[in-house]
Structure formats: C-alpha cells, structure tokens
Amino acid sequence: MDIRQLTTFQKAATLLSFSRAAAELNYSQSSVTSQIKSLETTLGVALFERLAGRSVLLTPAGQRLLPYAEQLLALADEARRAATSAPEPQSGGTPPRPLGGDRRRAAPGRPPPGSLPRQRDTAAGP
C-alpha cells in the first residue's frame, strides 16, 4: 500500500467512478484500475463493487478504509510541508548549536570541560 494507491482509491471512492478519477488525477483509466486492483490484492479484500455502466460502489471494506486513507493522505501532506518548509531565520542572538553536543576540547591529558562532577570541599566541615 503506497501513497499513490491511497490517493487513487480516495479519488475513485469520492467520485464513484474510475474514469472520472483518472481524468482528475491525469492518469489513464487503466492505471487507476491497476492501482485499485493492486491495493485490493495487498489488502485481500474488494474495495469496490463494479456496476454496469462504468460506475462503482464502495464495499463495506472500502467504506472502512476511506477515512483511514484520508487521514494518511492528510498526514503525508503535512509531513511533506514540514520537510520542505524553510526554517525561520534567527534574528541575532546565539547561533544554533551543532548536533553532537558540546564541542569544547580538553587540553592534552585532561578530561573535557564539564565531564567531571564538582568536588565538595570536605575541609570546611558541615
């Protein structure tokens, strides 16, 4: 099951027509049919009932899948927008820290700064 198949399924389920779904998605009608058959094979259920006159109806399995397909497509679109949006430039201040934590170096033979716990002064007493 992939995004393209879910997009095709959602469009065909909304329009109840493979040929109109193909026209809206700029696919050939045979591509829509192939994608739907592949999705049905993957899921092991019929999603559409094919009727005479090129119209289709959703089966109960198709009706159950439709809201999930819509949620997955909305989430994929949100993820795409998040990944491709440019981050807001920072105004002044401290530049962002590089990944990988503290990059300060220790003098040869000494532990890195901040790596040892602070020592308590035991001479001062309680």
Rank of each mutant, 00 (worst) to 15 (best):
residue 52 A to T: 10
residue 59 T to M: 09
residue 44 G to T: 13
residue 19 S to G: 04
residue 54 R to H: 06
residue 44 G to I: 14
residue 29 Q to G: 07
residue 49 E to Y: 02
residue 27 Y to V: 10
residue 41 T to S: 15
residue 26 N to A: 14
residue 49 E to D: 13
residue 40 E to S: 09
residue 43 L to K: 03
residue 59 T to R: 10
residue 59 T to C: 07
residue 56 V to Y: 11
residue 17 S to Y: 05
residue 29 Q to A: 06
residue 40 E to C: 07
residue 54 R to T: 05
residue 52 A to Y: 10
residue 20 R to F: 02
residue 28 S to A: 11
residue 47 L to Y: 04
residue 55 S to R: 09
residue 42 T to N: 11
residue 54 R to E: 02
residue 38 S to T: 13
residue 17 S to M: 03
residue 28 S to H: 10
residue 40 E to N: 09
residue 39 L to H: 01
residue 39 L to C: 01
residue 57 L to H: 03
residue 33 T to A: 11
residue 42 T to S: 12
residue 51 L to N: 12
residue 41 T to P: 04
residue 48 F to R: 14
residue 41 T to C: 09
residue 51 L to K: 12
residue 18 F to A: 03
residue 38 S to C: 12
residue 17 S to G: 00
residue 51 L to C: 08
residue 55 S to C: 07
residue 19 S to E: 00
residue 51 L to Q: 13
residue 37 K to C: 14
residue 19 S to I: 04
residue 16 L to W: 07
residue 47 L to P: 11
residue 36 I to R: 03
residue 20 R to C: 02
residue 58 L to N: 07
residue 34 S to F: 08
residue 29 Q to H: 08
residue 46 A to Y: 06
residue 39 L to W: 02
residue 34 S to N: 06
residue 40 E to K: 00
residue 32 V to L: 05
residue 36 I to F: 09
residue 48 F to H: 14
residue 35 Q to S: 00
residue 32 V to E: 06
residue 56 V to C: 14
residue 33 T to F: 09
residue 57 L to A: 04
residue 50 R to F: 10
residue 38 S to N: 14
